[in-house]
Amino acid sequence: MSELLHRRTVVKELLKKRGDMVVIGGLGAPAWDITAAGDHDNNFPLWGAMGAAAMIGLGLALAQPKRRVLVVTGDGEMLMALGALATIAVQKPKNLSIVVLDNEHYGETGMQRTHTGYGVDMAGMAKAAGFARTMNITAQKDVLRLRPLIDGMRGPLFAQVKIDAEKLPLVLPPREASYIKNRMRISILGPEAALHQ
């Protein structure tokens, strides 16, 4: 039996030499994970709005079609927005990738089991919705294949990555939402367009 993947190692691998990639982190552990890999102006870690991550990714991907947009979120957060898989599949954004770190538990609320722990296959749902590329990942070798696929921009891509349900020390991103918004807009649009239009 292979050992389960570790969330911080997976995210660090995905964000290595990220270039101008834009990253949305779903609330809870994925937000801490993308911050642990290195806080960045192009990170948008969520502190709330559970179920928003994938759709924020869609709005960004449509607005910035030449940029890679990566949504890193948890199984509980993605389960709250399964309809978004249908919405995204209809729009077919080639530059959008969604990576679900699936520990089969609600980690922030006491490790209650989620639906994926009972066998719900979200990558299968994304495939049925019409995502161009879907993957169920359990091994490090597939994590290594993931980043080139994200860079290839032939999405939308959906990867469900099974990970260990470990509890790790939090790595907190900046907390003020307006700051997180403005630093990303300035990074993407430049200060003039971001602040004066």
Partner: peptide, 26 residues
């Protein structure tokens, strides 16, 4: 204009937050 058909209305709130981050109005 890009029409984005939503399965439920709150998707649109998140969509347009992303659009604004990327410099588009909705």
């Amino acid at each position: 204009m890009r029409i984005v058909r939503l399965t439920t209305e709150e998707e649109g709130v998140a969509l347009l937050a992303g659009a604004w981050l990327g410099g588009e109005k909705g």
